[in-house]
Design a protein around this nucleic acid. Structure first.
Lengths: 248, 248
DNA sequence: CAGAAAAGTTAGTACGTACTAAAATACGGT
DNA sequence: ACCGTATTTTAGTACGTACTAACTTTTCTG
């Protein structure tokens, strides 16, 4: 068969996940599931430090750094991020709005699964991770309504409002507290259900009071009092526990 | 920069939507969202006639016929369909199993949205269409449990069991009934919410008894008695109403 | 401050999924 | 049996997203 030139004649929009939220006035802004994941990850990394580094992103998303570079350029083209060549990436206002909506979806879904469908708090992350890309705003708001518009998810993380405001508290990591300090557990970061279960079994859950008893050198265990029991946990695990420091 | 040969070194699996149902023993079988949509559409077309034609599929999925051809070859490679060149496509047993699981997901989600989240029966299709690809088996079974394992969705369509059995009833189209015949509405086919709402407003809903009063020639309206009122509807709309014929 | 290590980018490739245009096949009616 | 139309497939292209390899830039350390 001989050559046939394909004359590009405005094909229709493809690849993006339509969530059926018809916004006729202005921007359609349909993002792919992957793009959404990047934005959320950038948001989180920005919160944990400064601009999100390419390798850190690659690590978190389990994607090769080179691929991340490429995607960041695409997101920059869409006006969702601002990348400073060789110096990390930040969300623009538009990008942050998308990320916050995703986080709202995620946390409401987690809350709903635990409250209404009998899921364990340590077993909802992956489910929410998938559903957050598929759920329409109507579904999310219906879930929120049924739950009485919760303000925190089962891990203690605050839920952004529908208009994208989030009550970020000043939190420290359990691993960073001094010996003798007391704190209230605000939440537990982390995607790994085993870690969540492990901590949960030791009583480390949102709302619980803890006190640092001692810490061993050379990355040794941290001993904390939880309720009336003492628990020795690794600094690695403790790093995922977000706490609200208290006066002794 | 000079040429660099990319040496293919077994990259990791990509593109498919992992639903987190870890089946370590045999087949992973992770399908993309699109592949799943094709399988469902083929299932439906097979039920409405014989092998699914490429154009019919293209029509239903709103995709160019050429693209459908390509995808069918991929699905055939995966052993999910059997295509007889130029003569339509059928699901294999494996393909049918996937389609039935999707239909189960879809119908349970629809049921749940109506029963627990205040959605209107004519407004759940699109939401379910997206969620069915993201929901894990655990979520689906949790929803089913909460609802008491329903056997039909809000449109009256039967829900396949978790093991893939479906109670397909012998149904006729309202458009095909003779004048004077009575029937019970079993369900309404269709993705178009306007049609569903239109019919619903006229009392045509699953479970309702109808009687054909008259039909006009040249594709004219069909007059049916619904409850104690007479309604004149177009044959096009009537064709979407599935009924269980009854003795007069 | 130089050189090594770390971090990031570019180049080239692959695959899934879509498109248009054009060719091939099948089918119904004269 | 033939011809035109409908259906389907192939050819060629595009784009998003991923990969590895190789290169560049920045940062850290002796």
């Amino acid at each position: 068969m001989t050559a046939a030139r394909a004359v590009t004649t405005t094909p229709k929009r493809r690849g993006a996940v339509s969530r059926g939220d018809g916004q006729p006035p202005s921007a359609p802004l349909e993002l792919t599931l992957q793009a959404e994941d990047y934005l959320k990850a950038i948001y989180e990394l920005e919160r944990e430090g400064d601009a999100a580094g390419t390798n850190a992103l690659a690590d978190r998303l389990d994607i090769a750094a080179a691929s991340v570079s490429g995607m960041l350029q695409r997101l920059a083209r869409l006006g969702l991020v601002k990348t400073e060549r060789y110096h990390g990436t930040r969300l623009t206002a538009a990008g942050r709005a998308v990320a916050l909506q995703l986080i709202r979806r995620h946390r409401i879904i987690e809350s709903y699964l635990v409250a209404r469908l009998g899921f364990a708090w340590d077993d909802v992350h992956d489910e929410a991770e998938r559903l957050e890309h598929a759920a329409s705003p109507q579904l999310i708001e219906a879930m929120a309504r049924v739950l009485g518009n919760p303000t925190a998810d089962p891990h203690g993380a605050p839920i952004p409002t529908a208009s994208g405001e989030i009550a970020e508290r000043e939190l420290a990591s359990l691993a960073a507290l001094d010996v003798g300090a007391s704190a209230r557990v605000a939440g537990v970061n982390g995607r790994d259900p085993r870690l969540l279960r492990y901590l949960g079994e030791r009583g480390i859950r949102p709302g619980v009071k803890v006190r640092i008893e001692s810490r061993e050198p050379f990355d040794g265990p941290i001993v904390v009092t939880v309720g009336r029991e003492k628990q020795a946990i690794s600094p690695g695990a403790a790093a995922h526990v977000r706490v609200e420091p208290k006066a002794p």
